[in-house]
């Protein structure tokens, strides 16, 4: 019986691990800590693996645990996730304007409070509906709407400020 659980769990991680790691990194905003957070979530899931698989859709269950684990990390760190550096972009060629825009978006995203950032990532990157986002975050649809509204307002403000700054820089060049 234990061997069945182990085999099932190993197969699940092999199949879904890369996707779950991307999800974790997106949710936490910290690729260095992503695997640690994913491991914590998987440890919790593995403790009840039989029950989780009986209910079906283990991936959504694990995602919920990832969101909870990420929230615990934020609480413990009591600071916002670190800004991703441009170092991670690799050697591929990207036009300068695009780098500037991505950098502005990255900085604006990292500057959001964790909950607002989480709503944006789940809604825009993961493509979830407001109801699905609320379910995953264990909160109400109303909260998702208000957090999402605040996040997009802040992002627009920050990005238009960035646009103005870069436009001014361009005019000076």
């Amino acid at each position: 019986m234990v061997r069945d659980v182990e085999a099932g769990f190993t197969a699940f991680v092999a199949e879904n691990g890369p996707r779950l790691l991307r999800f974790t990194a997106a949710v936490t905003g910290d690729r260095d800590q992503a695997e640690d957070v994913l491991q914590v979530a998987l440890e919790k899931a593995y403790g009840s693996w039989e029950r989780i698989t009986r209910r079906g859709e283990p991936e959504s269950y694990v995602k919920k645990m990832i969101v909870n684990a990420a929230r615990d990390v934020w609480r413990r760190r009591k600071r916002r996730p670190e800004v991703f550096g441009l170092d991670h972009q690799g050697p591929s060629y990207v036009p300068f304007d695009e780098i500037v825009t991505r950098d502005a978006v990255r900085t604006a995203l990292a500057g959001l409070p964790p909950r607002q950032r989480l709503v944006l990532v789940l809604r825009y990157w993961e493509g979830l509906t407001e109801a699905e986002t609320a379910e995953l975050m264990g909160t109400s649809v109303g909260t998702v709407k208000s957090q999402g509204h605040r996040a997009t307002t802040t992002m627009r403000e920050l990005l238009s400020l960035a646009d103005e700054t870069y436009a001014a820089l361009g005019a000076r060049r």
């Binding site: 699940f12 790691l21 593995y46 978006v105 990255r106 992002m155």
Partner: peptide, 23 residues
Amino acid sequence: LVRASVDDDLRGLAVSADLAARV
């Protein structure tokens, strides 16, 4: 923009081969 930014940050991310065993 958000999608592109997050995707960009996740480039090259790989799971350790022994993750399931560690768990």
